[in-house]
């Protein structure tokens, strides 16, 4: 495995009970890269993220992260290796205040943002820090879900549909944050429905169809492959 290769997924199969969702996903992500997983609903993008973390019923194949095999490790050990996860449903806890939500994930490595830096980045969260987590607006909850994993020092961020259902101002803000993260050598895997949000951010687009990687398109090929993307994504 070359030093630049940070996350390497080979032949990943995933199952929810009886249903077989991923049928051999192969995917490489280099350090400092932003990769976007595109595809229709139910194609297996979210399941790919969840399978990296071991949050699904059963998985086989190989997920190498920073030289460690993740298959067989329980989720909390995987997170401790430096993987931050922002789930599609945001996962804000109702029984925790905004600030408790923010402070919940333990630090897994040095170099995470301080609480002050996070409040500078998201001033709304500072204002609402004492509110119950689920009393925040949708946009605030989304910021909280992203901010929560920036504190921990995790260098691989798995972001699931972070722009979904948000006002354009907030989407712009999140894009800005992701750009800043990339510039500071974070590795980002982005599951996105919103092609316009993902396209300018991602170094590569990975199209997932029926639980497999159907195509990989680099940023510079975007224009020439636009017709193809339109066809597979219906955008």
């Amino acid at each position: 495995m070359s030093a630049a290769e940070y996350l390497r997924i080979t032949g990943l199969h995933a199952f929810y009970g009886e249903s077989h969702i991923l049928h051999g996903v192969d995917l490489d992500v280099r350090r400092g890269e932003c990769v976007s997983l595109l595809g229709r609903n139910g194609a297996g993008r979210t399941t790919t993220l969840r399978a990296i973390l071991g949050l699904i019923g059963r998985r086989t194949g190989s997920v190498m992260f920073n030289g460690r095999e993740l298959i067989g490790l329980p989720p909390h050990r995987i997170a401790r290796l430096g993987v931050g996860y922002c789930p599609e449903e945001r996962g804000i806890y109702a029984s925790l205040s905004c600030e408790e939500n923010l402070l919940l994930p333990p630090r897994v490595a040095g170099g995470g943002l301080t609480l002050e830096a996070i409040y500078d980045l998201f001033p709304n969260l500072h204002e609402r820090r004492r509110s119950q987590g689920t009393r925040l607006s949708g946009g605030e909850q989304q910021m909280l879900a992203v901010a929560r994993i920036l504190r921990t020092g995790a260098r691989l961020l798995l972001l699931d549909e972070v722009s979904e259902g948000l006002a354009p101002v907030i989407v712009t803000k999140l894009a800005e944050v992701i750009r800043t993260l990339r510039a500071s050598d974070y590795t980002v895997v982005l599951v996105e429905q919103n092609f316009r949000f993902a396209a300018p951010l991602a170094d590569r687009m990975v199209v997932i169809e029926r639980g497999r990687v159907a195509a990989v398109i680099a940023q510079h090929e975007l224009d020439s492959k636009r017709d193809f993307l339109q066809e597979v994504l219906g955008v």
């Binding site: 973390l53 949050l55 329980p74 989720p75 909390h76 995987i78 997170a79 401790r80 996860y85 789930p87 996962g91 919940l104 994930p105 333990p106 897994v108 929560r148 994993i149 921990t152």
Partner: peptide
């Protein structure tokens, strides 16, 4: 499950 995904 999510709590475990945060390393707890």
């Amino acid at each position: 499950r999510l709590t475990a995904a945060f390393g707890i």
